[in-house]
Simulated scan of single mutants.
Amino acid sequence: MTRLIKNLLALLVLAVGVVWSLQGAGVVQGSFMTGQSQWLYAGIVTALVGLAGLAWANRSRQ
């Protein structure tokens, strides 16, 4: 996989995690996920996976 595709996938996972976290925290309204703490925690974990994916995609190769 190219670096661009890896970065795009990692950013997508990160964005999904942020949205889930905001919905779980009640910041984003209009969903069955709004105000549900399990979505806050799932979003945090998903966002961390996205950040790890970005770090992995951009690591230097020697």
Rank of each mutant, 00 (worst) to 15 (best):
L11Y: 12
W20T: 00
A42T: 15
A55K: 12
V13D: 00
Q23K: 12
A55Q: 09
N7W: 00
I44G: 10
G24E: 02
W39I: 04
L14D: 01
A52G: 15
Q62D: 11
G50I: 03
G43Q: 02
G35N: 08
S60I: 13
A25V: 02
W56G: 04
T46Y: 02
L54W: 10
Q36S: 09
A15V: 08
L51V: 15
L11M: 15
V49F: 13
V16P: 00
V28S: 08
R3A: 06
Y41W: 15
A52K: 09
Q36D: 15
Q29T: 14
G35D: 04
G35M: 07
W39G: 03
G24D: 06
G30K: 10
R59N: 06
L40F: 15
N7L: 10
L8N: 11
R61I: 13
V49S: 06
A57I: 02
Q23S: 08
A57E: 03
L14T: 05
V27S: 06
A25R: 10
W39E: 07
Q29M: 15
A15N: 00
R61S: 12
I44W: 07
M33H: 01
Q38R: 14
S37Q: 09
A47T: 05
Q29V: 14
S37C: 00
Q36N: 14
T34C: 10
M33V: 03
A10S: 12
V27C: 03
L48W: 08
L54E: 03
N7R: 10
A47D: 03
M1P: 05
A55V: 14
V45W: 07
L4I: 13
V13F: 01
L12N: 05
G30V: 12
T46M: 09
S31I: 12
V28N: 09
I5M: 08
L40E: 09
Q29N: 13
V18A: 13
L14S: 04
I5R: 07
G17W: 01
F32G: 12
L14W: 11
V49L: 15
G43D: 03
A10I: 02
A25M: 13
Q29L: 15
S21A: 15
A42H: 12
A25D: 07
R59T: 07
A15K: 00
S37E: 11
M33N: 03
V16K: 04
W39H: 10
L51E: 01
V18W: 04
W39L: 03
V28E: 07
L40I: 02
I44L: 12
T46V: 13
G30M: 11
V27E: 08
V19A: 14
M33A: 12
T34V: 09
G17T: 01
L8T: 11
L4F: 14
Q36G: 02
G30I: 12
M33W: 06
R3D: 00
T46C: 12
A15W: 06
L8S: 10
L11H: 04
G43R: 00
G24S: 09
G43N: 04
T46F: 05
G26M: 06
A57T: 03
V19L: 14
G24I: 01
Q38C: 00
A25Q: 10
R3C: 01
S37H: 05
A52R: 08
A47H: 04
G35V: 05
A42G: 14
R61H: 12
V27T: 10
W56N: 13
T2A: 05
L51A: 14
L54P: 00
L22A: 14
